[in-house]
Design a protein around this nucleic acid. Structure first.
Length: 424
RNA sequence: GGACAGGUGGCCGAGUGGCUUAAGGCGCACGCCUGGAAAGCGUGUGGUGGGGCAACUCACUCGCGGGUUCGAAUCCCGCCCUGUCCGCCA
């Protein structure tokens, strides 16, 4: 969310960012509405507050006269009149304020200077690690997984629906191994605090990280309560300190959480439906960082490296892609996607998305810190990234490490947790 | 799910319609005192929004949202959360 003052002080920046997001045309009416509402709001506040000041003075005088046993009927009548006018203006003000909230909640974040202009086609691969295996002769992961008895997609579809996975035997154990390896690495080597959080959250949390109000159709909602299944641990974890003021010494602070993630994928029917490529429920380890505005750029690189290290330990070839302005998510100011090579399907699969949100989420979730005792609170910056998302990593593991006899080697880092070196 | 008791500033805690612009204490900051410290004394100490270059000033803020009233921390209604007991339950 932007500061309300964006409509007075940062209009050029706002319009330029929306242009780079390729949304200026569709958002111009919204921006114009914001400008008008802001100016109406301030005029109304001035009117209502001067009336309130008069009302307060009047009430004080009534009190004084009553104590002095004097008559105050004329003042009480005057107060009644002021009160009526206040009520009318306050109604108008409430309408203006909720209008402004509506506008602010629907405007995406500014984007950073260095993003390429353009849409998805302008995304820029910044580096590639490892040697992508030739696609020829490699079977897709769903065949490998089924043959090895690790994956049971038909039964997943039966008990929940298409896009829900059943892992079996060493497949199930592999999921558990990844939870441990990923979380342990972030805790022991990267200094994150491990947290275990609810995966059902309230509306305020979903609004704090920007899933609501704009993307309601992407998530699962409970029927009897105003609560939602999280699409990512970003939601509960970023909201941990919602409406709090942190000490400066607390920053920077990293959190790591494993959670299942639930996504309706309403807009992606028919895309990437095979195997583990796009599913409604999946497991993910998420890393979230809180920091000061001064350090967020460096923190973004740090966080992204924390995700990359896991891919390197797993020995999976990957590339880092800087998303163009037009492909960058609603709340993000800058995003690097990490994509892993899956030779069986012949595609680079997004296994992590590492973003800096600048103060956008912090303002929505009211996450602040006090730079020094006695100073005014400031909004923090928030960042997050997958570290990592399981199903696509499993797909890449199965395809990349597939051997000619149909068995699959297991990277050394997973072996102690999994108990075997080869799946056969 | 039911019954009862609660929710006041960084913390404790008073306050049942107007001498409360939230008493008092603790903590914290600064000053006085001191050779230095402690104690003591004094002053200050939240957040949001509006106006103003600023000093400053106005409004709002006693869990949240409505209502009654000239005036609400205080009265009424709804909700949320916490505690205790009961019921149910992995």
């Amino acid at each position: 969310m932007h500061d309300l003052r964006v409509f007075r002080d940062q209009l050029d920046q706002l319009r330029d960012a929306m242009r780079r997001r390729q949304k200026l045309d569709s958002l111009t009416p919204l921006i114009d509405r914001g400008i008008q509402l802001d100016s109406d709001r301030r005029a109304t506040i001035q009117a209502v507050e001067s009336l309130k000041a008069a009302r307060n003075a009047n009430a004080q005088e009534v009190a004084r006269r009553k104590r002095a046993k004097e008559d105050a009927d004329d003042l009480i009548a005057a107060g009644r009149d002021i009160g009526g006018r206040v009520a009318t203006l306050e109604e108008q003000l409430a309408i203006l304020e909720s209008g402004i909230q509506g506008v602010l909640l629907e405007l995406p974040n500014l984007v950073l200077e260095e993003l390429p202009d353009g849409g998805e086609e302008a995304n820029r691969v910044e580096k590639t690690w490892g040697d992508p295996r030739e696609a020829a002769g490699v079977r897709p992961h769903w065949e490998i997984g089924e043959t090895l008895g690790m994956l049971d997609l038909p039964r997943g579809a039966k008990i929940a629906g298409s896009g829900f996975i059943v892992f079996r035997g060493l497949g199930a154990r592999l999921v558990r191994a990844m939870m441990n390896v990923f979380v342990d690495t972030h805790v022991r080597e990267h200094g994150y605090e491990e947290v275990w959080v609810p995966v059902v959250v309230n509306r305020a949390s979903m609004t704090g990280t920007s899933q609501l109000p704009k993307f309601a159709e992407d998530m699962y909602a409970l029927r009897d309560e105003d609560m939602f299944l999280v699409p990512t641990a970003e939601v509960p974890v970023t909201n941990l300190y919602r409406d709090e003021i942190m000490d400066a010494a607390f920053l920077p602070h990293g959190f790591v959480a494993y959670t299942p993630c639930f996504r309706r994928e309403a807009g992606s029917a028919g895309k990437d439906t095979r195997g583990l490529l796009r599913v409604h429920e999946f497991d993910k380890v998420e890393i979230v960082r809180y920091c000061t505005p001064e350090t967020s750029s460096a923190e973004h690189e740090t966080l992204t490296r924390h995700a990359e290290v896991l891919l390197e330990r797993l020995g999976l070839p990957y590339r880092r892609t800087l998303l163009a302005a037009g492909d960058t998510g609603f709340a993000s100011a800058k995003t690097w996607d990490l994509e892993c090579w899956a030779p069986g399907v012949g595609k680079w699969l997004e296994v992590s998305s590492c973003s800096t949100f600048t103060d956008f989420q912090a303002r929505r979730a009211n996450l602040r810190y006090r730079p020094a005792p006695g100073e005014k609170p400031r909004f923090i910056h928030t960042l997050n990234g997958s570290g990592l998302a399981f199903p696509r990593v499993i797909a890449c593991l199965l395809e990349h490490y597939q051997q000619s006899d149909g068995s699959v080697r297991i990277p050394e880092i997973l072996q102690p947790y999994l108990g075997v070196a080869v799946l056969r």
